[in-house]
Design a protein around this nucleic acid. Structure first.
Lengths: 245, 245
DNA sequence: CGCTACATTGACCTTGCTCAAGATTAGTGG
DNA sequence: CCACTAATCTTGAGCAAGGTCAATGTAGCG
């Protein structure tokens, strides 16, 4: 895990057999969609289309209507909004197991594209919505997910509105570390950062220069070491206190 | 509407008879909870407890578990999170018709207190959740609301992360104008601001001085006029272009 | 009238942005 | 395997938007 980055592992996984991917897909879909009855699960499974994307592929864009929703199986997707003059705000990164398509019930569109190669479960937006309407347990699960997303979004508002650059970076790293830990099942002092500095900047409301400077200052201060496609945490307590301060 | 501010009207409404308030309450509860069958409506009505709060009353706080959820009938409530060192981020203002309690399914708590005097429909959190579980139409409605809130939260992230002070203020004013318009049924060039400058600052990720300076500069530039408890828009097109630019 | 809370204004300073130049890394074709 | 190119990252110097600190103004209220 320290030699081979998660980014690389994810790239490899995408290359695996379709049959294997579908198995992943189903497991993910089940875990994401919560405690469904087994016939519900079969129904949902029938709606599922496994798909893969190379890095930089567009999943949604702000202009065109959304036809599909996705569950990410492997890889990382960035969700963002663009202002007319080109300024970008990344509103989230979708990691394996995440569901893409909660926030698009209304007219409010956003963009999504793959940071790495990605494999996903694709569902027709309409079929998925029908299925949810006919299965209250699933609707309930979707609602819990939406509620959870809302709480995260509010946490992100605090970060964007009231924290300085160092706190933003520290918080970003700690949150990502915990998300990877949930996915891989074990916590790692090496935090993979498959996204580039510009993506981190656009997520945290900073510039690429500030992200770079802050990370390198943290490295100089022995808080962490910068490694290819990520960082390795040296002083977890200090980083955590920065993140939550 | 131009002489008497909305803030004053809201204060008056709170003073009205309990019977009158309950009628308001039921109407609001129905409209908020969407297209329910009539017996559903009666069931929900039975769970409802009309309550009033003076200005500055605490509805939720970050520490203690949430026992009730609310639908606001009159008045304005601010929702916010506090950092350990006292920095505050207001994540939203709840206006008449808004539902309070979507984002608190998980452990993530936040604070809420009344900006003005408030009347509301109070529901036990558990009873409300049970009711939703037994009425898929209502659950569906709640989910749509959560999804809508999520879209708004993402819009707020763009504002906090990627817009300058002037754009933030302009956007805040235009959004509030549209929200009041939906509530009162007619658009008004006078935008009521029942919350103080500090609240606006903590909502937009600015300081009170920057809010004050920016508003007064806009007044000097003939974009608007500052009136007691609000502003009057003079140059709507220019304000709107600032808000969306 | 005087108290308190809130808003405004000014002077100054700091954080983070802008602009520009290198350094690294990754990808490509010979 | 290496040279060349393009993309990404780092670093520095200067600047400006917005924050900080402090003083003054204003409105509501007992």
């Amino acid at each position: 895990m320290d030699q081979t980055t998660t980014a690389a592992i994810l790239r490899d996984h995408v290359a695996c057999e379709c049959a294997d991917m579908c198995r992943h897909c189903e497991t993910r879909a089940l875990s994401v969609c919560g405690p469904l009855e087994s016939d519900d699960f079969l129904g949902l499974q029938r709606l599922n289309h496994p798909v893969t994307f190379p890095a930089r592929a567009v999943l949604f864009n702000q202009e065109s209507p959304v036809r599909h929703v996705f569950t990410i199986v492997h890889g990382v997707v960035r969700l963002y909004k663009l202002l007319p003059d080109g300024r970008r705000q990344i509103v989230g990164f979708a990691l394996p197991g995440d569901f893409l398509g909660l926030a698009l019930a209304d007219g409010y569109g956003f963009c999504a594209d793959s940071v790495t190669a990605v494999s996903a479960c694709r569902f027709s937006r309409d079929h998925f919505a029908d299925f949810a309407d006919r299965h209250p347990a699933m609707l309930r699960r979707l609602h819990d997910m939406a509620t959870h997303e809302l709480a995260l979004a509010q946490q992100q508002m605090v970060l964007l509105g009231r924290r300085d650059a160092e706190e933003k970076i520290a918080s970003f790293l700690i949150v990502l570390q915990k998300r990877w830990a949930r996915i891989t099942g074990k916590i790692s002092v090496t935090i993979d950062l498959p996204m580039g500095r510009q993506d981190i900047a656009d997520f945290l409301g900073l510039t690429i220069e500030t992200v770079s400077r802050t990370l390198n200052r943290m490295a100089r201060d022995r808080l962490l070491v910068i490694v290819p496609d990520g960082v390795r945490v040296l002083d977890a307590p200090r980083l955590e206190s920065l993140a939550s301060a």
